[in-house]
Computed example of a mutant assay.
Amino acid sequence: MPKQGQSSFEVEVVRSARRTKTVSGKLVGNTLQIRIPATATKKQEEQWVASLVAKLEKKAQKKPQSDEQLFQRAQTLNATVLEGKADLRSIMWVPPRKSYWGSCDSASGIIRISEALRDVPQYVLDAVIVHELTHTFITTGHSPEFWRWADKAPQAERAKGYLEAWARMLSLGALTKPS
């Protein structure tokens, strides 16, 4: 059973005499087990492995759907975008509010993110998370220093435009959720 380090997980290819045409992949712990026909060529194996690894990586990059996944995403953004400056204690999804996408209680370090953002592009959600994380270490409101940090989110300006346009469409009743 050859192992191939392709990503943040191990890949284990299992050749099966019982398989004749199909390929399957299953994540077991930190190992992607890929079962292929025993008669597959090395080139076929490489193509199948690349395809299944790409699918798994794409799935892993999808937006967080649980509070724990949201917390993990916020930790990653804190480390990579904000140099670990944020004091993140808790982050959670909350029912949509009419006046904001997220909120931060800087005293407690608790961040709330509107469930309305579950379907937005990843860069939009990331920008809102970085914005709220910035409130944990710059507590003087939306000062120029605050925006220097908050605007470090990837595609921050694009995300602001997306949210502004979406908010206008929602206020006109033209949209019920983002597409």
Rank of each mutant, 00 (worst) to 15 (best):
P2F: 01
G5D: 11
G5L: 14
G5Y: 09
Q6L: 10
S7H: 12
F9I: 10
F9K: 09
F9H: 04
E10I: 08
V13L: 06
A17R: 14
T20Y: 06
T20N: 13
K21R: 10
K21W: 12
V23H: 13
S24F: 02
S24Y: 05
S24N: 02
G25M: 07
G25H: 05
G25I: 03
G25C: 10
L27Q: 12
L27S: 08
G29T: 15
G29V: 15
L32Y: 02
Q33S: 15
Q33P: 07
I36P: 01
P37C: 04
A38G: 03
T41F: 09
T41W: 00
T41A: 03
T41C: 06
K42F: 01
K43P: 03
K43Y: 15
K43C: 10
Q44D: 14
E46D: 06
E46Q: 08
W48V: 13
V49S: 09
V49L: 06
V49D: 12
V49F: 01
A50N: 14
A50W: 08
V53Q: 03
V53D: 00
A54N: 13
K55R: 15
E57M: 02
E57N: 02
E57S: 04
K58E: 07
K59F: 09
K62D: 15
P64V: 12
P64A: 00
Q65P: 01
D67F: 03
E68N: 04
Q69I: 05
L70P: 05
F71Y: 13
R73K: 14
Q75N: 05
T76I: 14
L77G: 04
L77T: 14
N78P: 05
T80V: 10
V81E: 00
L82I: 06
L82G: 00
G84E: 00
K85L: 11
K85C: 03
A86Y: 02
A86G: 00
A86T: 06
D87E: 07
L88H: 02
L88K: 07
M92Y: 11
V94G: 03
P95G: 05
P95I: 08
R97C: 13
S99N: 11
W101P: 00
G102P: 04
G102Q: 05
G102D: 06
G102M: 07
S103V: 00
C104E: 09
A107P: 07
A107C: 02
A107Y: 07
S108V: 11
G109H: 02
I110N: 11
I111V: 10
R112W: 04
I113N: 12
E115G: 15
E115I: 04
D119V: 15
Q122Y: 15
Q122D: 11
Y123R: 14
Y123W: 13
V124H: 01
L125W: 01
D126G: 08
A127M: 09
A127Q: 09
V128M: 06
I129Y: 05
I129N: 09
H131T: 06
H131E: 15
L133V: 00
L133N: 05
T136L: 01
T136Y: 08
F137M: 07
F137G: 03
I138Q: 02
I138V: 01
T139Q: 15
T139K: 15
T140V: 08
G141V: 05
P144Q: 02
P144Y: 08
E145Y: 06
E145T: 12
W147K: 12
R148M: 08
R148F: 07
K152D: 04
Q155T: 12
A159V: 05
A159E: 00
G161C: 10
G161V: 12
A167N: 12
M169D: 05
L175M: 03
T176H: 10
T176G: 10
P178S: 12
S179V: 10
